[in-house]
Design a protein around this nucleic acid. Structure first.
Lengths: 230, 230
DNA sequence: TAGATCATGTGGTCCAACCACATCAAGTAG
DNA sequence: CTACTTGATGTGGTTGGACCACATGATCTA
């Protein structure tokens, strides 16, 4: 077993034993190296991996933001990994879109009306009305859809939804170049968003699921999924 | 931007530009360090991250298995990340089970009969008849379910299915201690597996989806999901 | 009292050296 | 000529030490 894996397993055990909690700090790199009788390099490689997985965050200096702190951000971590595999063409973008539609349909079908997540989703819709620029709009769009997914109360589903969306965010932005008129599309997306949210708040999960699936597939079909942007 | 991130982005660009293909080799660590004008340490940290994401594999020595080679194993990589987040109790096991049931139901409902993946699934069932030990059985069980999921032809769904199953494999093994009699449960699981595969091969996706959801939830309910094993 | 300065501790980076390993080529004994 | 041994080469794995940038808090000073 390689040395950094030993460090990795030690830290994972600390986590699963509850000796290292969310928000807690790892020992300083030099201290941990001495404690485990390995080099600081090996400790650092282990921390790099945990950082890539969204389990810790490393900060220099001293005080609140300093040191290596345990966090819980699986979505961005999984998103990066998926993006790389999309880059190697091992995971087709079409499959990602299809999976995202599957997860999100399930989520909105089971979303509870009048939850904080839905209130946040409604707020994001207001904000989207004021931001017409493609990048701003898409950024808010991601947050709206993730908020929707969170309303179902399944952390794994919303995490995966977010990571899938993030993995192809750059791709989606590039696809907008294929659209005949962004303003027209944006107006349609806004209307669809409101209809989806309305259905969820009405407790009509079945209709919400249909609308969200049509919403997702509609955008990628219009933008020409699989075609290179001009 | 930190130095290892620079290396990471350089490699990601090589991948998305198609200059680095599946099975291809990265430049040697020392050569890459000189080429990018960074230290070997930073190159190594980048490679560690890619390795954790299942994008490359590092091998010592010379010849076929040597060097850093581009691979495509997202399932095990995502599985490790999910397992760590389960360890921090940020992702509940129940949510993982529910998500897995969702993905797998969808997959079997769309699985095409008479595909190579289903033939492999059938072969695995034969093998499971001969392996009664818990660990062997569960290992084959994972492969059976992944083979089933592959028959739907969506790489992202089967990848996520596999990673979810892997993330809680240790948990599932521990849960078997809660079962009153493993042999009885194993016999039931074998029968359910055959019924699922039969439904898929009959083209009855709807029935297959119902069976697989009942199969998954049934096991975890019987084993006492959420309860500590004795 | 208010500001400047220094000490401390953190992660970030780099370097030089050595190890373990696998392969291949050259040399050597048969 | 064959078969084995030996050494050279190139790979990632590991280590210790040095220095940097940064943020904070204590201390000194005007």
């Amino acid at each position: 077993m390689r040395t950094h894996e030993l460090v990795l397993h030690w830290i994972e055990k600390q986590l699963s034993d509850g000796q290292l909690l969310l928000g807690g700090r790892l020992p300083a790199e030099r201290a941990l190296a001495e404690q485990l009788q390995v080099s600081r390099t090996s400790v650092r490689e282990a921390i790099r991996i945990l950082e890539a997985m969204g389990v810790v965050r490393a900060g220099v200096g001293s005080g609140k933001d300093a040191g290596t702190v345990v966090i819980a951000e699986p979505a961005s971590a999984l998103g990066s990994a998926l993006r790389l595999h999309v880059a190697t063409q091992h995971l087709p973008v079409a499959d990602i879109v299809e999976t995202r539609a599957l997860l999100e349909s399930w989520a909105v079908a089971r979303a509870k009306p009048d939850t904080p997540a839905l209130a946040e989703a409604a707020r994001l819709l207001e904000e989207m009305d004021a931001h017409a620029a493609v990048d701003d709009f898409l950024g808010l769009d991601v947050r709206f859809h993730v908020a929707l997914a969170e309303a179902a109360g399944n952390a794994v589903v919303s995490t995966m939804m977010g990571s899938l969306r993030e993995a192809i965010e750059g791709y989606a932005a590039a696809l907008t170049a294929n659209l005949p008129d962004w303003e027209t599309t944006a107006a349609r997306l806004r209307a669809e968003h409101r209809a989806i949210l309305q259905a969820v708040n009405d407790g009509d999960g079945e209709r919400a699921a249909e609308l969200v699936a049509a919403h997702i597939h509609g955008f990628y079909r219009e933008a020409g999924l699989g075609q290179a942007p001009d």
